[in-house]
Design a binder for these strands. Structure first.
Lengths: 345, 345
DNA sequence: AATATAAATTTTAGCGCTAACATTACGCCG
DNA sequence: CGGCGTAATGTTAGCGCTAAAATTTATATT
């Protein structure tokens, strides 16, 4: 049970342990305590120890707001992604985290839910934290947001895709149209000829994947608009099954389907199981992103493996270098992808 | 391309637009601008408008650090969960967000990855932000962390489970042991007799689910240690298949398996598909959490539906009421669960 | 019109920390 | 042993905002 004084939020605090309390107890100035905590190598060992003891004894917790205000630096990187819950971005986030945390940076994370409006308002909100840098997903954003970011004059890394619109500052990702094209070439090589396409969410990257895929089919004289089914609804496993059902209704003769992400592909495979359609013999299915479950579904799913962790890690590393004052020779990095062939296509 | 002045981080800022710039331009005092932005009903309409214009013209972005420092309140709620990428917690987070965002609160989120150590260090880190409140997962935590939270003297809501250890402050969730027990009773009622149990991750809540399940089996004289297989490895779909394979090796006569979460259950179903074991005729399978995909896998998965969104929403509402100074009559809320019977068991 | 009351606004004083500069202590050399 | 460079510590001032108190202005009441 909570027994003690509850700080009155919204009143002038008293009784909070501050740097000067620690300073008083350890018999040095506040500034020295600050240095003992943030640049320990700059104070003598005995001071370092006395300060550590005082911090412990008093239960001192530094106040980031004060630090940020005084230091004109927040030690915070804002990360703007469509959805933290998405397994795709989770890997990216780990990559960012593994670089930021050891460097003493916090991450401020938020979801856009694939909406340009939500992205704009989220970025506005994040700017009030005065982050030292920002990592945002994708190359496309509202013009006003672009201006806001330029006005903020902080380093920005755009992640996930390269080669779409011109980047604002730094850029790390893969070419989604090339990845889509690679999948199309693979399917054609394997002998599939009546190839369908399923897409949901239809953010810019899904669109580019599908465009790249279709362009290759077109080049081979195998494109057919009737075989492409997309929706702006959020992508779910169940939706994959429904979309496949729709698509087959209009194209009973399909011999393969490219799903613009693995979730849809799972749903499509489930639908085939229910209809006793043998995959890949009667219908081949491929996905995109190569999520954890793709290796163990039946049949195992052919997909495009994207370097998610490395995208996050590289983006954060570039950010750190920029924050250290370095001028990057290569502000745009294409990390490439790998086609993971398995049993489903 | 970034053209303009890059703020030197770590130097005294100049040239940032501040409240007083807005005040000067709109011909009122800084304090009035502050009120115009934060309590608009307390200033005259014309001032409100002039301020809005000046904010627009100057591109003013408030500085949260300054606000937090001056106001002794951060408008931040720290949220400590095992893994943001987990679909389970995603729903909880949405519930929290839907209450916090309209109330003007930010969420500071972090993962413990089911580790008590990581939880401790995360909470320490979060306390440096001086959040106005904290929402943490589960009832169990390191004793030192418990003391830290008490010393911080902020409202705390522990979420996900009720009825385990005594709560620190407020508490919202379900009883995992009761939920496990309910599943066991259901399986016994359906006539299953040689029932196995699979568990991974084995955080406290998984343990309680399994314990509740086994207690009921025991009461019915159907418990058997050999039929329980658990691991502390993180739970994944693929692991579910491997664990089932192991379990069947030692217990070829099983007629049902309870998986302590849906991911494992998916893997178990896949493994059955590969082995041509008919579910549920030869082997029934049940999961826990009722994730999105559980309704459309083949066969559809019997699971325990937990009120994830409502847990988050309720927790945040209790937090808001507490921050408004209210004394809660009911600091512990059990939201209950529902057994979702489907085809797999 | 005088007074009481409420509403709108300003003034003052800091929140807790760190950048920049100032000072002191210490070792080392000629 | 004085002078000098370096390392260690201290002093000053202020980051941008808001709580609280003080003041001015508008509105109601008699």
């Amino acid at each position: 049970m909570m027994t003690t004084r509850q700080n009155q939020p919204g009143s002038r605090s008293k009784g909070r342990v501050t740097l000067s309390d620690v300073a008083r107890m350890s018999g040095v100035s506040a500034m020295t305590v600050s240095r003992a905590l943030n640049e320990p190598q700059r104070v003598s060992e005995q001071v370092r120890e006395r300060v550590a003891q005082a911090v412990d004894a008093l239960g001192y917790v530094p106040n980031r707001a004060a630090r940020s205000l005084a230091g004109n630096r927040s030690y915070t990187i804002a990360v703007v992604i469509p959805s933290v819950s998405n397994a795709v971005f989770n890997n990216v986030i780990r990559g960012i985290y593994d670089v930021c945390a050891p460097a003493g940076y916090e991450m401020l994370m938020g979801n856009t839910y694939y909406s340009v409006q939500q992205e704009s308002s989220l970025i506005s909100k994040f700017l009030t934290h005065h982050p030292d840098g920002m990592i945002v997903t994708g190359l496309d954003m509202a013009e006003s947001t672009r201006r806001q970011l330029e006005a903020a004059a902080i380093p920005v890394v755009q992640i996930m895709e390269v080669g779409g619109s011109a980047p604002l500052d730094m850029n790390v990702g893969i070419s989604h149209s090339e990845a889509g094209a690679a999948m199309a070439r693979y399917m054609l090589e394997r002998g599939y000829r009546r190839i369908g396409v399923l897409g949901a969410q239809m953010d810019y990257r899904s669109q580019r994947r599908i465009q790249g895929f279709i362009d290759v089919l077109m080049g081979a004289g195998r494109a057919d608009d009737k075989r492409v089914l997309t929706t702006s609804e959020p992508s779910t496993v169940c939706l994959g099954g429904q979309l496949l059902a729709d698509l087959l209704l209009r194209n009973p003769d399909l011999d393969a389907v490219f799903c613009c992400n693995d979730d849809l592909a799972y749903g499509a495979i489930y639908e085939c199981q229910r209809r006793h359609i043998r995959v890949p013999q009667q219908l081949a299915i491929a996905g995109f992103n190569d999520l954890e479950g793709s290796a163990c579904i039946n049949p195992s799913l052919t997909s495009i493996q994207t370097p998610l962790y490395d995208i996050g890690k590289t983006a954060a590393q570039m950010m750190m270098r920029r924050l250290a004052g370095e001028v990057l020779q290569q502000p745009v990095v294409d990390l490439g992808f790998r086609l993971q062939a398995r049993d489903s296509a």
